[in-house]
Design a protein around this nucleic acid. Structure first.
Lengths: 329, 329
DNA sequence: CTGAAAGCGCTAACAG
DNA sequence: CTGTTAGCGCTTTCAG
């Protein structure tokens, strides 16, 4: 029924070892033999069984991808970059949603390891102590993209979040902005902390402080933007920094609905830089993260680990740009 | 090094068959034995090798998902529904981007089959003759969600696109709208045709016809909305039906930038119903497709095929609703 | 350049 | 309830 390497060998009058060599591009096969084998492969429509191959070779050419929410554009954009590179290096990807739930995340790691993936790339979530311990005890390489583990022990690809927020705040201060608000949370607590740290650093240099009431944590979706706006409006912010674009758009609309002029009375800037930023009026100002590249470079880094190549730099910091569009002055 | 079922067996002083039974929840094990085995499993931190298991059992509890573009919200929303059901039934998913390229699509099918997936779910793309032939010649079940193959031979989950467009056109005609335009294309040619057929049917009943110059095909992204608007504006449409939300939003903005009042002078309605519809002002009117369910039901259908359950209905038509929001009168 | 043979780690009859 | 025994389909020494 399903035809195997053995069928091909018999039909081509060679041993299965030779068929294996042909299939794997081993040069030690006489051209004539190779041709004959290839002819039989085509004729019989032979398709190598990757599972058997994986068992025998202890390599599956498969990498696992852990993502908090695939329907979040930020992550699907990272996934896109990473997939392209994976394909380029002939790896398949198993993408799993963790829902940012530590238990699910742990299960996913377990599944992935039991599937014998050659590597894992982690795009955001919690990375509980349990999971971290599991990672430490396995020899399967793990790379983190677009977020960070708590102690930065894992190889990672990121931008400098703190630096970006620092820059933004400095500019706003020059404009005379006094009251800031910060909205973040959700999938990457570490990035959130970095951004907040950056804000507080500059503010402190100017003998100012971030009002705790002006810090909103919560989900990162559109409707959470409304909630955030309502929660913050009593602090009368003149500028809001918001991690998520989608949520920032919610804030823009909630503010507009409340009769607040953007950017004249309220400036808004986001960090995710998905293609949503151009889909609002005024267009959303944001930190231009190279999303595709964060995914792509992460996967490239992982391939280096999987092939045991030299790693120059296990922590890659990619450049960012700040694009001041319509929601800032 | 990596510990196997054999190590557990030796340590627990049972045969590997017994360990296998415990791991697989086979009831034919004395509780005391089961407990002892479980203790050893935990102590040794044994993790079954899914690859070996797959080879021996000829089942991988993995399904392949083929998607034209994971960063397209429409598809990532389907993927979300499908993933949840897959997880519920203990299947893992391998998601691959086809980029709507027949060659890549074919390769993906090949890879998936060589990985011995238990089933495949197809979310949109081309389904070339080659690929269709490959599907026919394999015993691995394939289900299509949110689109259709040309001859509807494969099990599929959809809404009635033609009916939806018919309804929309009838309403617009009642309002006295005379000049229609249609924008579609991209990932599901079949859905596009269905929508267009629906439009033309009603128009014909009213002795009208769709101006060929008022039909625009192309990509489905925001910037393509601008292009579409420019290409169509000479036909002076009073209403535009557009498959993609993202593209529809592009049209809305392009029209607004041209000084056209929406919905007074131009009505716009889309079909994808992603959460983008609420992220524009005015809010986008659209056909409310049950995206999550289209994915979820597709996966459920696939599990039935994989378990060889009875199938009542290989073509599932899910209900839709039309939500007339701000971009229609 | 080619073949023989020994597994990879597990499941699944088959006995008992 | 438990153990023995064949494989699953392929890669990989090791000889020659």
């Amino acid at each position: 029924m399903t035809i195997t390497i053995y069928d091909v060998a018999r039909e081509a009058k060679v041993s299965m070892a030779t068929v294996s060599r042909v299939v794997n591009g081993n040069p030690n096969v006489k051209p004539a033999t190779r041709e004959r084998v290839n002819e039989v492969i085509k004729r019989l429509n032979y398709r190598p069984n990757a599972v058997a191959r994986g068992l025998a070779s202890k390599k599956t050419t498969t990498v696992g991808v852990i993502i908090p929410d695939i329907s979040n554009i930020y992550y699907s954009e990272l996934a896109r970059g990473l997939e392209d590179i994976a394909t380029m290096y002939k790896y398949q990807t198993i993408i799993s949603n963790s829902d940012n739930d530590p238990v699910k995340e742990n299960e996913i790691f377990n599944n992935l390891l039991s599937k014998q993936v050659d590597g894992i790339i982690f795009l955001g979530g919690t990375l509980s102590a349990d999971t971290l311990a599991m990672i430490q005890s396995t020899s399967v390489p793990v790379v983190v993209s677009g977020t960070n583990d708590g102690d930065e022990s894992l190889p990672a690809v990121n931008i400098d979040y703190a630096q970006a927020s620092t820059e933004i705040i400095e500019r706003l201060l020059e404009q005379g902005v006094k009251r800031f608000a910060f909205v973040g949370g959700g999938y990457s607590e570490k990035a959130r902390q970095d951004v907040q740290a950056g804000i507080e650093r500059v503010l402190k240099e100017h003998n100012l402080a971030l009002d705790p009431a002006a810090v909103y944590k919560g989900n990162e979706q559109y409707l959470d933007g409304e909630k955030a706006f309502n929660a913050l409006k009593d602090t009368k912010p003149e500028a809001i920094l918001c991690i998520s674009d989608e949520q920032a758009i919610g804030i823009v609309h909630a503010a507009q609905d409340a009769g607040i002029k953007i950017p004249e009375e309220l400036q808004i800037i986001s960090f995710n830089n998905t293609r949503l930023v151009q889909m609002v009026r005024p267009k959303l100002s944001s930190v231009m993260q190279p999303l595709y590249d964060i995914g792509a470079v992460g996967m490239r880094l992982l391939t280096k680990y999987m092939n045991e190549e030299d790693i120059e730099d296990k922590n890659v910091i990619l450049p960012y740009k700040i694009d001041y569009r319509g929601t800032t002055k």
